[in-house]
Simulated scan of single mutants.
Amino acid sequence: MRSKIMPLLIAGSLALLATGCGSDSGGSEGSATPKPDGPVLPQRLEKPPAMPDEDKAQPSPAADASFSENLAYELRRKTLDMAKAPGKITANCPADVSSKSGTVVTCKTTYEGLEVEWSVRIGDKAAFSNNYVDFTATPKQGILTRDGVARLLYGNYRDSIDYALCNNIPKAVLVPLDVKSKYACEVVMKGKQPTGYSEPVRATDAGPRSF
Score class of each variant (00 low, 15 high):
A126Q: 08
Y163N: 07
P49F: 04
V105E: 15
F135K: 00
G27K: 01
S99K: 04
A65E: 06
E29T: 03
L80K: 09
P94M: 03
G30E: 04
I122D: 10
D159L: 15
F128N: 13
Q141C: 13
A65L: 00
S31T: 04
K125W: 13
T110R: 02
P42L: 02
R158M: 13
K140S: 10
I143L: 06
G30P: 00
P61I: 07
K35L: 10
K140M: 13
S28P: 02
A85M: 09
L41E: 13
Y111K: 01
G38N: 01
E54Y: 14
A150V: 03
G113K: 07
T138G: 15
E112A: 02
Y163I: 01
Y111S: 04
P59C: 00
P49T: 10
Y154N: 13
S28I: 09
G113D: 12
S129Y: 12
E46A: 14
D159K: 11
K88A: 10
E74Q: 01
P42G: 05
L71A: 00
E112T: 02
R76A: 06
Y154G: 07
Y163H: 08
T103L: 11
D159Y: 14
S101T: 05
T138N: 06
S28G: 05
Y157K: 08
V105Y: 15
E46W: 09
A50L: 08
P48L: 01
C93N: 11
A91K: 04
P61Y: 05
E112F: 02
T33S: 05
A72E: 01
T136P: 12
A63M: 06
Y157R: 08
N92Y: 11
R77I: 05
D37H: 09
G87S: 10
D96P: 08
I122E: 15
A32N: 04
A137M: 03
G87C: 14
A126K: 04
G27W: 03
C107L: 02
P59H: 00
D81H: 15
K108T: 10
F135A: 04
G148K: 11
D96A: 10
E117V: 01
E117N: 11
C107P: 05
V120L: 11
D134L: 06
G30Y: 05
Q43V: 11
M51I: 08
G27I: 03
L75S: 05
S160F: 09
S98M: 07
I122L: 08
D53F: 14
T103D: 12
D147T: 07
G155W: 11
S129K: 14
K84S: 14
A137L: 07
E69C: 02
A137P: 01
S60G: 08
E69R: 00
A164G: 11
E29D: 15
